[in-house]
Nucleic acid binder design. Structure first.
Length: 232
DNA sequence: TGCTGATCATGA
DNA sequence: TCATGATCAGCA
């Protein structure tokens, strides 16, 4: 598949199957941001300082993801989540990966099995993208996509961290959580700025107001799953 | 405000 | 050098 075939209105049609989506993602490997932006008639920023989600949005358009902000998977009918991941020349992640917002209230009855995080990570299309800041955005290339589901070990790791972190939230200890908690998963602020506030539970069970948080996958975890795939 | 898409930038 | 905590943009 050549970007030339994308000389048609984007966003592209929604893929009908997981295989179609995967093939489409694989076909993008090797192209630069400039090539894809040009073919999509999208203006390309000089850097990502003020356009942090630009690469993600570009890929969404090429892959036919339903645009807009919904708390659902990118391809709800396929049950697949799309994640672009910035990597260095060795293919190792340069950043942690945001998964979803951490629920700070209304957690009665929430279990690992029915958690938002587990659903999001059930099936992920990872698209590595060169992300080193020394390389101009226009020249950065797409890598080889990977369709992934957590294996039993990965799921255990995620579940362990998730349960530990959710316990702290439910026990009113949100504000004592730092990014150092968790082996593969961490909770960090996820907000417009440090003045943005949301409701949570305090240490005496009272309502408090705190910074919104998000679940992030640590680099070692995403690095391992990428490495595992490309070694085979 | 809170969700999506994330990366920035500073202190350790 | 690197991870943590902070931040940016668009939309509903």
């Amino acid at each position: 598949m050549d970007p030339i075939m994308y000389n048609q209105p984007l966003p592209l049609n929604i893929p009908n199957s997981e295989q179609e989506l995967y093939q489409r993602a694989l076909a993008l490997a090797g192209y630069t941001m400039k090539e894809l932006a040009d073919a999509a008639a999208m203006p390309i920023p000089n850097d990502l300082k003020r356009d942090k989600g630009w690469v993600g949005m570009l890929l969404e358009r090429y892959l036919g993801a339903s645009a807009g902000s919904k708390p659902e998977q990118d391809f709800p009918h396929l049950g697949v989540e799309l994640k672009t991941i910035p990597v260095n020349a060795q293919g190792k992640p340069l950043e942690t990966t945001f998964v979803c917002v951490a629920p700070l209230t209304g957690n009665v009855g929430v279990t690992w099995e029915n958690s938002h995080l587990r659903k999001k990570l059930r099936r992920v299309l990872w698209v590595p993208v060169e992300g080193e800041r020394s390389k101009p955005l226009a020249q950065r290339r797409i890598g080889t996509a990977l369709l992934w589901s957590p294996d039993s070990h990965e799921e255990q790791q995620l579940r362990h961290d998730w349960e530990e972190l959710m316990d702290l939230i439910v026990l009113g200890k949100v504000e004592s959580i730092t990014a150092r908690h968790g082996e593969v998963l961490q909770i960090r602020p996820k907000a417009a700025n440090s003045r943005a506030l949301t409701e949570a539970v305090g240490e005496f069970g009272q309502p408090i107001t705190t910074l919104p948080r998000g679940f992030y996958l640590k680099k070692a975890f995403t690095g391992a799953l990428l490495a595992k795939h490309f070694q085979i």
